[in-house]
Simulated scan of single mutants.
Amino acid sequence: MVKIGNLELGEFPLLLAPMEDVSDPPFRAVCKENGADLMYTEFISSEGLIRDAAKSVQKLDIYDYEKPIGIQIFGNEIDSMREAAAIAAAAKPDILDINYGCPVNKVTCKGAGAGILLDIDKMVSMTAEIVKAVNIPVTVKTRLGWSQDTIRIVEVAERLQDVGIQAISIHARTRQQMYKGEADWSYLNQVKANPRLHIPVFGNGDIDSPQKAKEYREKYNVDGMMIGRAAIGYPWVFNEIKHYFTTGEMLEAPSLQERINVTKKHLDFSVQWKGEKQGILEMRRHYTNYFRGMPNFKPFRTEMVTAESYDHVIKLLDQVAEVYADYEF
């Protein structure tokens, strides 16, 4: 049984990665219904939280049906991160997660996200202060290192454990790699082989099929997996992986009608969360992914991403069901 603090997550939990502009409550809802064991919010700026910025505060929205849920924060100032951690903990998540992995320039140039991998001592000090500031388990999401020649992930995991984190998720790329090249999970094997390490280690990067999930589970000895891009437009990936682990067989791919039903459900959550106008606007980024690979779909996609009313989108989805009634994925 994998545990984070007193939180029991099963034998081999599948985690939904925190993804900016993706992992909001509506997306998390459909992932939860399709097998995600633990989910995280989008990363939230510590500076935004302590200044009560509306966009940052709204990202604290979590719901009982999502539990267990973690709130993730990022920043580069220890005092701000300590204060933001307390604000986030007041929203009553099960876990507080620290983002030490985001590779984008606007974050790393300020020494936040993966930028802190250039200053491991500060990373450890900041983590220690955050652990002291809250009464819930603290976890970390990070990368192997800043660059190939600065990888110290075995040491980093142990030092973070020693100041109190209760699990670590490792994206098996360096910051310099961004999202390119192949994730190198062999470093996760090294982390797990450290006899001093006893916290759960979750692997992240390139898990895009049940077959690869099973291969990596057996090969790299991790305690669970965090899935990001493979879940976008395809929340079924969690249950498909679990089914493959159990039976060695692939679940049948979701039918067109299943995809439409989940798209509608996702849209409903989005409208309930942010109102019709904003909910429809934020849903637009998802249509291409839900219907990826369908022939001659561009006219429907174009109309969906310009539709301004809930009824119009529902009508279009029903038309897709009719026009592609005989299509099989």
Rank of each mutant, 00 (worst) to 15 (best):
Val104Gly: 06
Val104Lys: 09
Asn105Pro: 11
Asn105Asp: 14
Val107Lys: 01
Val107Pro: 02
Thr108Pro: 04
Thr108Arg: 03
Cys109Arg: 15
Lys110Ser: 13
Gly111Lys: 05
Ala112Phe: 03
Ala112Tyr: 02
Ala114Gly: 11
Gly115Glu: 08
Leu118Cys: 13
Asp119Cys: 04
Ile120Leu: 14
Lys122Tyr: 13
Lys122Gln: 15
Val124Met: 09
Glu129Leu: 09
Glu129Gly: 06
Ile130Cys: 12
Ile130Asn: 07
Val131Phe: 06
Val134Phe: 03
Asn135His: 14
Asn135Tyr: 07
Pro137Glu: 05
Val138Ile: 06
Val138Thr: 04
Val140Gln: 03
Val140Tyr: 00
Lys141Leu: 09
Thr142Tyr: 06
Thr142Met: 07
Thr142Glu: 04
Arg143Ile: 03
Leu144Pro: 10
Leu144Asn: 10
Gly145Tyr: 00
Trp146Ile: 02
Trp146Cys: 02
Ser147Gly: 12
Gln148Val: 12
Asp149Tyr: 05
Asp149Asn: 14
Asp149Ser: 13
Asp149Pro: 04
Asp149Cys: 04
Thr150Phe: 06
Thr150Ala: 06
Arg152Pro: 01
Val154Pro: 02
Val154Thr: 13
Glu155Ile: 05
Glu155Cys: 04
Ala157Tyr: 08
Glu158Ile: 11
Arg159Cys: 09
Arg159Ala: 13
Arg159Glu: 15
Asp162Met: 14
Asp162Asn: 15
Asp162Ile: 07
Val163Trp: 04
Val163Asp: 03
Gly164Lys: 01
Ile165Gly: 03
Gln166Gly: 08
Gln166Pro: 04
Gln166His: 11
Gln166Arg: 15
Ala167Cys: 12
Ala172Thr: 04
Gln177Pro: 04
Lys180Leu: 12
Lys180Trp: 07
Glu182Cys: 09
Ala183Gln: 07
Ala183Gly: 04
Asp184Thr: 09
Asp184Glu: 13
Trp185His: 13
Trp185Asn: 03
Trp185Pro: 00
Ser186His: 10
Tyr187Ala: 03
Tyr187Glu: 00
Leu188Ile: 09
Asn189Pro: 00
Asn189Trp: 08
Gln190His: 02
Val191Gly: 07
Lys192Ile: 10
Asn194Met: 10
Asn194Gln: 09
Pro195Glu: 02
Pro195Leu: 05
Pro195His: 05
Arg196Thr: 06
Leu197His: 07
His198Phe: 13
Pro200Ser: 03
Gly203Phe: 01
Asn204Ser: 13
Asp206Ala: 02
Asp206Lys: 05
Asp206Pro: 06
Asp208Ala: 14
Asp208Phe: 11
Asp208Trp: 08
Ser209Val: 07
Ser209Met: 08
Ser209His: 08
Pro210Arg: 02
Pro210Met: 00
Pro210Lys: 01
Pro210His: 00
Gln211Tyr: 11
Gln211Asn: 08
Lys212Val: 15
Glu215Leu: 15
Glu215Ser: 14
Arg217Cys: 09
Lys219Thr: 15
Lys219Cys: 08
Asn221Gly: 08
Asn221Arg: 13
Asp223Gln: 12
Asp223Arg: 09
Gly224Asn: 12
Gly224Ser: 11
